[in-house]
């Protein structure tokens, strides 16, 4: 069981990351708020508790890697890298601007970003290549990759899923951000993928489930995943799209929506309040 102090700390950080996501998006400009907020606790748990990741040694060959295969949600990874001091604070206001280093989707021009993702479906394959290399080099490093539940319609992910199992990549932890909403509506209506856990199991994976906003449970399930040997583990994380921003929760409108000044202010107030309650 995770230590209560650690849980408190990660909880607080997750809310801080959400606030930075809102600030990065700003007012009147579209930004991928929903899918970034659903990943906040998971990303906070990885970067601030579980991952072997030294912000001063980005090239350490033995660092753990984290990839956001659903690349549009990279804002939450930017927020973590900002918090760690990897990305300079002054870049926050320059998201998606010429001259800035924060692209709309993950790009190697940003320090701390491990791969180019965003053309959906490619992150798990890239993670496999990393895990295979780490095995060749006898590195203890782990590779984490977050995918969207809508993204799972991409056939390449299932090619990759077969490959991870064929090569028994137990240094790999995949996370499905199951927020059940994709760009144009509920995943159930757009392209339902029933029996998700059974599908992963049938593809040869160790399957774990978690409430993707319960930090204690996330920390425990990440340990459980890392302890599993002989094959890859996927964590199906039940999440809420837009979690923490009332008007953005459970709606496709803020998959990539623009906030009015009023909404922006409200989002920050709500997040700040939740962060305080988490103390």
């Amino acid at each position: 069981m995770a230590n209560p102090d650690k849980i408190q700390r990660v909880k607080k950080i997750a809310w801080d990351l959400r606030a930075d996501v809102v600030r990065m998006i700003g007012v009147g400009k579209p930004g991928h708020l929903g899918g970034s907020c659903s990943l906040a606790e998971i990303v906070a748990a990885l970067y601030f508790e579980k991952m072997h990741f030294d912000p001063k040694a980005l090239d350490d060959p033995n660092r753990d890697r984290f990839l956001v295969s659903k690349g549009h949600s990279v804002l939450i990874q930017y927020a973590a890298l900002l918090e760690l001091g990897v990305i300079p604070r002054e870049e926050m206001g320059k998201l998606k601007t010429i001259g800035g280093i924060l692209q709309g989707h993950p790009d190697l021009m940003t320090p701390g970003i491990e791969a180019v993702t965003g053309s959906l479906g490619q992150g798990l394959s890239i993670a496999n290549g990393m895990a295979l290399t780490l095995r060749l080099k006898k590195s203890p490093a782990r590779v984490y990759v977050a995918m969207g539940d809508g993204e799972l319609a991409e056939g390449q992910l299932w090619e990759a899923a077969m490959a991870s199992a064929r090569y028994k990549l137990d240094s790999l932890t995949a996370i499905v951000d199951r927020n059940r909403i994709q760009a144009t509506g509920p995943t159930k209506d757009i392209f339902d993928i029933p029996n998700l856990e059974d599908k992963w199991r049938a593809f040869g994976w160790n399957v774990l489930s978690v409430d993707g906003h319960d930090v204690g449970a996330i920390l425990d399930v990440l340990d459980e995943a890392a302890a599993f040997k002989g094959g890859p583990t996927v964590i199906v994380a039940e999440t809420i799209k837009g979690k923490g921003v009332s008007f953005a929760e459970n709606t496709a409108a803020f998959h990539n929506g623009a906030m009015s000044q009023e909404q922006y202010d409200k989002a920050l107030v709500e997040i700040e309040e939740s962060g305080r309650m988490a103390q």
């Binding site: 791969a115 490619q122 290549g129 990393m130």
Partner: peptide, 15 residues
């Protein structure tokens, strides 16, 4: 599975 092969190669190269 050529698509997976190509992106997997990216992972190798990134490492």
């Amino acid at each position: 599975a050529e698509q997976n092969m190509a992106s997997t190669a990216a992972g190798f190269a990134l490492s």
